[in-house]
Amino acid sequence: MMNNNKNSKILIVDDTPKNIQVLGKTLEQKDYEIIVAQDGLQALKVVEKTLPDLILLDIMMPKMDGFETCKRLKDNPKTKEIPIIFLTAKIEIDDLVKGFDLGAVDYITKPFNSKELLRRVETHLELKRKSESLEWSNQNNRELIHILCHDLTNPIGFIEGVLQLTDQDPFIFQEMKKSLWTAVKNSINIIDQVRKMQALTEGKYELDLNLVPLKLFIQESMEILKPKLIAKNLELVIDIDDHLEVMVERTSFSNSVINNLLTNAIKFSYPNTKIYMSAIHKTDQVTLSIKDEGMGMPKGLLKDLFKMNKSTTRPGTVGEKGTGFGMPLVYRFVNAYGGGIEIFSKEKSHDSKDHGTQVYITLKGGVQ
């Protein structure tokens, strides 16, 4: 059976060395890693360097008592979720209520009973693990919903646009029939991809990576996004060898990677400019470059671009709206393929001509 305690860190905060010694010896029986602070101020300094999994906090201490220490820990976003168990020599109902109101999860009375101490510590560590697991699961589900909503926008938007045009010219339907089928299949594939990602998270599925023709996937994406390119009179310049292949999962690469990157390039490009897509092959790797002449990004935004919990959405050059979830999805999938991503960007200023964003995606691949 795996020992869940081995890497669990417990911070003991007590001004009495004998209490620290007793607590330390008891906890070491279960392989906990022990951290010590002898007053509240020292404890606050300790957690700045090392985050414990649980804190045993004495109430009566000099300099800063346990109540004030607890309050400061709970006010800090980095430490507010750490379970705190109060250590007390007396059981005063008002003190216990005050401790719980401040965010403590439990209390242990002195002198310590070893079995009770270990049981309470183990219980709250297990509750913390379950809470973190639930939060991780919820976050994963939120990401899957974002993928579904975000990536369905392009194919469904394309279908809507074509159907609107058929009101003006019924013959357009026949001309665009093949492209419409492609958009419908992409939509179905996105839904299937979300199901697979859930199974992947649960360990019931492995990502199916295959070598695919890079240029063909880009051309398919260009067809879906053609109305957006036309609307801003953008020229897409593609310089990619027909025989280059990359190792990816087909559906996610097309809908979550290429479509998102190209959509962003279109959104943040100024009308009547160009978007450049090129690729180079070195040894067993292919690096895809997507470069626009758009508005660029500030450094502050660039550093949060891949974080799902950070809002990076902003309007495009003609007011286009977005969700801000595109790049975190790109990052997630590229990493799942065993690849890497780099982004360089320079904001447009009044006298600047050298502005825009360039994205580099490096993937396993080669020449067919």
Score class of each variant (00 low, 15 high):
Leu11Arg: 01
Leu11Met: 09
Leu11Gln: 03
Thr16Trp: 01
Asn19Thr: 11
Leu23Asn: 04
Thr26Ser: 10
Leu27Tyr: 06
Lys30Phe: 03
Tyr32His: 14
Glu33Trp: 07
Glu33Asn: 13
Ile35Met: 05
Asp39Phe: 08
Gln42Ile: 06
Leu44Phe: 10
Glu48Ala: 12
Lys49Pro: 02
Thr50Val: 10
Leu54Pro: 05
Leu56Tyr: 03
Leu57Asp: 04
Lys63Met: 05
Met64Glu: 07
Gly66Phe: 06
Cys70Ile: 10
Cys70Lys: 00
Cys70Phe: 07
Arg72Thr: 03
Leu73Lys: 02
Leu73Gln: 09
Leu73Ser: 08
Asn76Arg: 00
Thr79Val: 08
Lys90Val: 15
Lys90Cys: 06
Leu96Arg: 11
Ile108Met: 04
Ile108Glu: 12
Ile108Thr: 04
Pro111Gly: 07
Phe112Gly: 01
Leu117Pro: 03
Leu118Ile: 15
Glu122Pro: 00
Thr123Met: 10
Glu132Ser: 11
Asn138Ala: 15
Gln139Met: 05
Asn140Gln: 10
Asn141Ile: 14
Glu143Arg: 07
His146Ser: 06
Leu148Val: 10
Phe158Arg: 07
Gln164Leu: 04
Phe171Asn: 11
Ile172His: 08
Trp181Ser: 11
Ser187Thr: 13
Ile188Phe: 13
Gln198Ile: 13
Tyr205Cys: 08
Glu206Val: 12
Leu207Ala: 10
Leu209Ile: 14
Leu211Thr: 11
Phe217Gln: 13
Glu220Gln: 15
Met222Lys: 13
Met222Leu: 11
Lys226Arg: 02
Lys228Trp: 10
Glu245Ala: 13
Glu249Gly: 11
Glu249Lys: 02
Val257Asn: 07
Val257Cys: 02
Leu262Tyr: 06
Ser269Cys: 06
Pro271Ser: 11
Asn272Arg: 06
Met277Phe: 12
Asp284Tyr: 00
Val286Met: 04
Thr287Lys: 01
Met297Asp: 12
Pro298Arg: 08
Asn309Pro: 01
Ser311Pro: 00
Thr312Lys: 02
Thr312Ile: 14
Val318Pro: 00
Glu320Met: 13
Lys321Leu: 15
Phe325Gly: 01
Met327Lys: 00
Phe333Leu: 04
Val334Glu: 06
Tyr337Gly: 09
Phe344Ala: 15
Glu347Val: 14
His350Gln: 09
Asp354Glu: 14
Gly356Ile: 13
Gln358Met: 15
Val359Asn: 05
Tyr360His: 15
Tyr360Thr: 09
Thr362Glu: 08
Thr362Phe: 01
Lys364Cys: 12
Gly366Met: 05
